[in-house]
Amino acid sequence: MSAHPRLSINQATIKHASLRQAVDATVRQGVQSIGLWREPVADVGLAEAARMLADSGLRFSSHCRGGFVTMPEGAERRAAIDDNRRAIEEAATLAAAGAPGSSASSASLIIVAGGIPEGSRDLAGARGRLEEAIAELAPEAQAAGVTLVLEPLHPMYASDRAVLSTLKQALDLADRVGSPAVGVVIDSFHVWWDPDAEEQITRAGRDGRIASYQVCDWATPLPADVLLSRHLPGAGIIDFAELTSWVTDAGYTGDVEVEVFNAELWAKDFDEAVADTVEAFGTHVGTHLALPVRG
């Protein structure tokens, strides 16, 4: 099966690949877009990563990740916010190096909120500190041409990874900050269960806040490490026809990332893992997507 032109391989799907290996496997399997993670970029250096991306001809769909800014004010928080400033610079540089063509914001920095600080039970306070950090960073992101892409995570991650759990919470935060540099990602794994998902996806589209659409599947039983509980589309219970129609009807026409955290997939040869992703996406997601119009 040939790769759908809107498919993007999020590098987490082949987590153990170096940047060079990830780029090469993506190109060999005919995929046109890639989402990168900061650690492999740092391993080679930003300038070299940008050169690799430019030479590959791939589009750049997102940079993962910023955030983790829910701790109280102090040296640790300042360091975290400064690290997000560096992530903004990285996203801008990589977006400039990627091939043109995605109709979504190509300078997208995915933001994972962070959990409740150790020793605390103050969920509201953690959410408030997230909002303060986004408000502080938004002007700098806007000046750099980068979208801070809020990613609400499934509530099972609220304690340790993301106090932002629903699209409504993310969109409400974006509205309060009031910056066009704040958007959201719709991740199937995190929103499929939400009874308000259709309404909030429509709202996100109306407000111009959909910066990314990520897909993977949900299947039970969950493994002991629930971070590794994602599956390729078609291996679980998510209705991708319905969800994709909501995202499409909301006006999103950009790249669609497959982001899978799964130990069995990670153990495969990188080309095999990407080929499996191409097939699963084409069968279960791509059939519900309009083809892109590239200028």
Rank of each mutant, 00 (worst) to 15 (best):
G30K: 00
V215G: 04
L291I: 07
L167G: 09
G45R: 11
N84W: 07
T166N: 08
H190W: 08
I111V: 14
S56M: 08
A75V: 12
V31N: 02
A97N: 10
D160T: 15
D83M: 11
S18E: 06
V293H: 11
E118M: 11
P5W: 03
V258G: 05
D276V: 05
A95F: 06
Q29I: 12
G295I: 07
R294S: 10
D122V: 11
I210T: 06
A25D: 08
A79F: 06
G115I: 03
P152N: 03
V182K: 02
M52F: 12
D196R: 08
A197K: 09
S120K: 04
A141L: 06
W266P: 02
S106A: 14
L222Q: 09
A170N: 00
W218Y: 13
F189H: 11
G45S: 10
K268E: 10
D172N: 07
L137Y: 02
R129Q: 00
E73H: 09
S159K: 14
M71S: 12
R65K: 11
D187R: 03
I34R: 11
H16N: 15
P155M: 05
E131D: 14
A113S: 13
D271T: 12
S229A: 15
A3V: 00
A22R: 01
E272W: 01
E132Q: 14
S120R: 05
A104W: 08
S103K: 13
H154W: 12
A87M: 13
V69W: 02
L265R: 03
A17I: 01
G251E: 00
L94S: 03
S120E: 08
L123P: 09
L227Q: 13
T220K: 12
V23C: 04
R85W: 04
R59E: 14
R85K: 11
A22S: 03
I210F: 00
L137W: 02
T248G: 12
S105I: 11
L46M: 12
A95H: 04
L228G: 12
S159T: 13
K15Y: 15
A263I: 13
H154M: 09
V149R: 05
L123F: 14
S229K: 05
V226E: 13
P195G: 00
E48Q: 14
L153D: 02
I116S: 02
R38W: 07
N84I: 11
A235G: 05
H284A: 06
D255H: 04
Q29A: 15
S61W: 00
D24Y: 10
A25Q: 07
L289I: 02
V226P: 09
I110Y: 05
Q214N: 14
L19R: 04
Q21G: 12
R176H: 03
A92R: 09
F261E: 01
R203L: 10
D269G: 06
V184A: 07
A250G: 09
D207L: 13
F240L: 00
V191Q: 00
R86E: 09
E39Q: 15
A273T: 08
R209A: 14
G101L: 09
E73I: 08
L227E: 13
L167E: 05
A91P: 00
P223H: 08
A138P: 08
A135Y: 05
I81N: 01
V184E: 11
L130S: 10
A79Y: 05
M1R: 04
W218H: 10
G282T: 07
A50Q: 02
